[in-house]
Nucleic acid binder design. Structure first.
Lengths: 209, 209
DNA sequence: TCAAAACGGTATCAAAAGATACACAAGCAA
DNA sequence: TTGCTTGTGTATCTTTTGATACCGTTTTGA
């Protein structure tokens, strides 16, 4: 694979020519398989990832339950890593590859300089922070105001829209993890939705009607 | 009041001399009373506030219920305003003064340049984003994992610690708003806590034991 | 091929939280 | 004072969610 060509198709919002050079010079392309661990709770973050392809699930682990923060997808970076790297802190989150990923990796020490040199980088960082924050607010609202039955449906519709397909490959257990509840609750609710002809259930697969 | 002296006592983490000059040159000191509206949902954000004293409550309004995002206190800025100003977006939140406030106000157009010129500003912004994000995660965790009874107690203890006093001036209705629930629920829970000798209730006042 | 693991359905029970309604007290303003 | 607003206590009822348990089916891998 030719890094140069593909890189700038993906990261076209980094506009400064010198910045592009730096990206090429300092960036390293890494491939990860599903299940690979990118960061672990407690680790110091020395490298900043920018995802080109695939998805990384970022979540926090507290006792037995977990909180999903976000997925890092193409063109995105992990704001938790960014902040931890910038302040030389330990990560408070886990990052695990859920879709085979290609990731650009940069030494954390560059962030400082980039901020001062490249407006497009600044914009990018601000935008990422804003988006992650908005995402979290949205989840927050969902939990406070919407019953799980609604959140399940929204999750499915959302996912279907993203993947441009009316069937979604996911088990009840996974769904429960995403929404922060238990498998039994999800199964019960999905069955209800099926009775109301909103969805159709298969093994590890849900079809939206 | 002498702006210069007080300003740099408060904002000592802005280290660059030229930056200090800029702060003095472009900053305007404004005073607000309790209840004053700083930003409204839908408004374009043309000015960036840095609070020197007091507190501003930032929240989102959805239908009849509201979501508390954070309070902007001394030395802090409002990340929602910051992002909205930077991207020239409308605010999606409300900001209302809850403790008489003194606020430094800067034209939003400066943010861009500051990012490129002043490392300490960069650090400040990153830190604010990180903190707000962490705060939100914490609330999130609370809602997902802790029963309201626990969250009420934590809220009170937290507030008591901040104000360095074992009595807190707050009505049940206000508490309900802060925690995203209803008055009746709060009254019920507070009474329970009182029976367990954890607190003592007065009109619009709660004493921690 | 056979056993274990993953997946899903469902019943029962309990707990948490919200909705509603009503009563009374304290503070405030005309 | 009188009436209005705000604050609080509490009872009742319902809904939502979670916990537990048990069962059968499908998939997977040794």
């Amino acid at each position: 694979m030719n890094i140069d060509a593909d890189l700038f198709k993906k990261l076209s919002f980094f506009t400064e020519p010198e910045f592009k050079e730096e990206l090429l010079k300092h960036g390293q392309l890494a491939s990860f398989n599903k299940g690979d661990v990118i960061v672990r709770d407690g680790q110091y973050v020395k490298f900043l990832p920018i995802v080109l392809k695939g998805a990384i699930r970022v979540y926090q682990q507290k006792e037995d339950r977990e909180i999903l923060l976000y997925y890092v997808r193409a063109e995105e970076t992990c704001t938790m890593s960014l902040a931890a790297a910038y302040f030389n802190n330990q990560s408070s989150s886990h990052g695990i590859v859920t879709e085979p990923a290609e990731v650009l990796i940069f030494p954390a020490s560059l962030i400082d300089q980039w901020q001062l040199k490249y407006p497009s980088w600044n914009r990018y960082v601000m935008n990422m922070f804003r988006r992650r924050y908005d995402e979290l607010i949205n989840s927050f609202e969902g939990i406070v105001f919407d019953p799980i039955s609604v959140r399940v449906l929204e999750y499915l519709q959302n996912k279907a829209a993203k993947e441009n397909s009316s069937t979604i490959e996911i088990s009840h257990q996974q769904l429960a993890s995403e929404l922060g509840t238990t498998r039994v609750v999800i199964s019960r609710i999905l069955k209800d939705h099926e009775k109301q002809q909103k969805i159709k259930l298969y093994r590890s697969r849900i079809e939206l009607l």
